[in-house]
């Protein structure tokens, strides 16, 4: 083995790690086609390089200091995927390209439809206005500044003066009933009625509460008759103090 080939083995390691620019990577790829020794080195080192990525896995253990993933992300994804699954033809193994293209088109439509529908409580007049509102909602829900209050079946998100009720695992209310949100203004002693809603078939609901977050100290949800109530008629399914 000469010095230049030893240097090539070093290059192979750097290539396996994925830190080469395009020109150098192309040069190493070309060499790997013809050099068995370097190919063997690459095959030995590539798994180690891939394993490095595993070390970054975020975990739910607060002691590690690692961040956790917002459940809203899963809620968004599952809404799109389930909508697509419901509208897509079943793709058999070895399906034709045409079938795959249909499935891809369905996904594109599902993604667009989800984009338009994500703001559940607003019937906006134009697509641009809808998109603008949706972008605001997405920005809010994904904001690093959002305060998230975990509740049974989802979370309450307070951000930029707005409050969202983001549920991803909520049972359907009994027939003839709906869920109703309640908000407690700061300094008040009784809850104020807010929006009614019903989760979708998968238990997902995203509700933007029409209140000023800075003036609201608590949020609750109860099961109420369809149409809502002026005062709670059942024990709340969730109550969260927002401070």
């Amino acid at each position: 083995m000469n010095a230049s080939h030893d240097a090539m083995l070093d290059d192979v390691a750097v290539y396996a790690l994925g830190t080469m620019n395009a020109a150098d990577a192309a040069r190493v790829q070309e060499h790997l086609r013809t050099c068995a020794e370097c190919r063997a080195e690459y095959e030995a080192l590539a798994p180690s390089a891939s394993a490095v990525g595993l070390s970054a896995e975020a975990c739910a253990n607060a002691e590690t200091g690692a961040v956790t993933v917002s459940p809203l992300l899963k809620a968004r994804l599952m809404r799109e995927v389930r909508r697509d699954a419901a509208s897509s033809p079943v793709v058999a193994r070895g399906g034709s390209w045409g079938t795959y293209l249909v499935a891809a088109a369905c996904l594109a439509v599902a993604v667009w439809t989800s984009f338009v529908n994500i703001s559940l409580n607003h019937q906006l007049h134009g697509a641009q206005a809808t998109l603008a509102a949706t972008q605001t909602t997405i920005a809010d829900l994904t904001s690093a500044h959002a305060q998230r209050f975990a509740v049974n079946g989802g979370e309450i998100v307070r951000v930029h003066g707005r409050i969202y009720l983001a549920m991803h695992d909520m049972p359907q209310p009994p027939r003839g009933k709906v869920y109703q949100a309640w908000t407690l203004p700061k300094g008040a002693k009784t809850m104020r009625p807010s929006l009614t809603f019903v989760p979708d078939a998968h238990g997902t609901a995203l509700v933007a509460l029409p209140v000023n977050a800075a003036l609201t100290s608590a949020v609750a949800v109860s099961v109420e008759p369809a149409g809502g109530s002026k005062q709670p008629t059942s024990k709340p399914v969730l109550v969260e103090q927002l401070g």
Partner: peptide
């Protein structure tokens, strides 16, 4: 491949922390 959303959810549950962790 057979458009099983439950399978996707299980895959997400098992791997989303890894994906998010690398991206983060």
């Amino acid at each position: 491949r057979a458009r099983d959303a439950d399978a996707f959810e299980a895959l997400y549950d098992a791997h989303h922390r890894l994906v998010y962790g690398v991206a983060m």
